[in-house]
């Protein structure tokens, strides 16, 4: 194993280091304050409940099983979303034919409250039944 030695490239990085020194560091300290999100960022999942028809396409296509549909008959259903399972891939947005479910460019905050990990997105379940049901699921 022979290695040749080229003296003219002895300290090849020196000019680059000089450039870097003139330019200043590209890393920053911890950025306290508002985070700047990229324009295409897929964040919090939201819904326009009046548009949802409970077709279940988002439920079927969700790769992380993060949306569930409880239904009884045509107009009696509840769409439940689990943020802890969500992969924020925006597949539900693509699958929805009515533009009901969508993701917005907002940061997803962390939470330590378990009840925040079950979000009822659409509730078309008559009130009297739902109270009894919710006690069981929680």
């Amino acid at each position: 194993m022979k290695t040749r030695f080229y003296p003219h490239t002895f300290a090849y990085l020196l000019p680059h280091i000089w450039r870097v020194l003139c330019k200043g560091a590209c890393t920053v300290g911890f950025p306290f304050g508002e985070a700047k999100l990229p324009s295409g960022y897929r964040g919090v999942v939201k819904i326009k409940p009046e548009l949802c028809r409970g077709c279940g396409l988002c439920v079927r296509d969700c790769p992380a099983f993060g949306i569930e549909l409880e239904r009884e008959g045509r107009d009696k259903f509840r769409l439940i979303y689990y943020p802890d399972r969500c992969a924020y891939c925006s597949q539900c947005e693509t699958s929805c034919n009515f533009g009901a479910i969508y993701q917005v460019n907002e940061f997803v905050p962390a939470t330590d409250r378990p009840d925040e990990l079950r979000v009822v997105l659409v509730d078309r379940w008559p009130e009297e039944d739902s109270t009894a049901d919710e006690d069981q699921t929680d």
Binding site: P38, G40, Y41, R42, A87, C89, S90, T94
Partner: peptide, 18 residues
């Protein structure tokens, strides 16, 4: 990575394909 994140919303998992 910044370009990709701006384009698709993800740095690594772009979820860009359908």
């Amino acid at each position: 990575l910044d370009i990709m994140e701006d384009l698709s919303g993800g740095r690594v998992s772009h979820a860009a394909n359908v």
